[in-house]
Amino acid sequence: MIRGPYVRPVGRYSWWLSQPRYIRYMLREVSAAFIGAYILMLIVGLLRLSQGPAAYESYLTAVLSSAGVAFGLITFVFAVYHSLTWFRVTPKAMPLRMRGKAVPPAIIVGAHWLGWAVASLLILLWVAV
């Protein structure tokens, strides 16, 4: 028998466009670009805060400008997507067993959602009140 295996090419730059699940994966990964940029923006905010009222006020004006709000909105959507995808796979990475039985993944995810809600509420209250 003659062997001459044929290797099909893989699109180095475009493979992730070939299936919806790969696109969803890429959206999850790209969240890091926005999250990283937002964190850098927060660091700039802390630096400006340490430089006095005038520096801080101009920073605040930039953050609340239409461009700043648009960036905040996009990052917010990506951050929520990150949270949802992260908690969804937590039971896979850290399965729990109690009394010899696996804890249903839905309970682990639910517990994380609860913690997420509580943490979010505390942050909102800390900033607002």
């Binding site: 999250i35 937002y38 927060l42 953050v63 609340l64 700043g68 709000v69 905040g72 909105l73 990052t75 917010f76 951050a79 929520v80 990150h82 949270s83 992260w86 908690f87 994380h112 913690g115 997420w116 943490a119 979010s120 509420l121 942050i123 909102l124 900033v127 607002a128």
Partner: peptide, 21 residues
Amino acid sequence: AAFVLPAIIFSLTLGVVLGWI
């Protein structure tokens, strides 16, 4: 990030625009 980031972004940007903060 999963636990705190959406709330941080909301309270420092979106919440202010929406008038919640």
